[in-house]
Amino acid sequence: MIAELITVALGAILINNFIFSQFLGICPFMGVSKSTDTATGMGLAVTFVMGLASAVCWPINHFILEPNKLVFMQTIVFILVIASLVQFIEMFLQKAMPALYTALGVYLPLITTNCAVLGVVLQNTQNSYGFITSVVYGVTGGLGFLLAIYLFASVREKMEYSECPKSFEGFPIALVAAGLLALCFMGFSGLKLPIG
């Protein structure tokens, strides 16, 4: 059990990193990585939502959709659950932690359309993970996102001061940098895991 969890966790953070090897959640990764502060905030918020979404969607899928043969409704149900979850978190933060709420600003509602969140939930059902494994996969997938976006934001802050060809200015050069980071993360595919 522990060995399985470690395999899932390391896999989600390093080997099958959501950004660099699965291409999930590229939009916020590119959009919110101009400074390390906002990147960290976004990463933490995504981690939280991914963990929570995994925890909420598992019982819904297992106890409501599967017994009633409604699995084909998965996409619609999950996206609605995620959207309302994000809405609740937004209202909760507004009341309980206004400082964090203002820091996250517009990025909070944007988490709904982050494909990493819907992606993690769909993968949980596809791989038929149990409840604990699902939650661990959600949280560690989020941590992998946090790691990726923090590293990328640090690189990008330095890149502001360097020159590059005119056509590559702005977005393309950021993509090249992300590509090089992806190359670095490929090195982790050599890691030996307890299972698999």
């Binding site: 660099f20 291409f23 977005f171 993509l175 190359l183």
Partner: peptide, 25 residues
């Protein structure tokens, strides 16, 4: 091989967007 791997996705898209910016400007 690298071009077919995730790295290639980033680099090829970067080149496509750069080419587009070049021709639009």
């Amino acid at each position: 091989m690298g071009v077919a791997l995730p790295v290639g996705g980033f680099l090829v898209l970067a080149c496509v967007i750069a080419a587009m910016q070049y021709f639009l400007n």
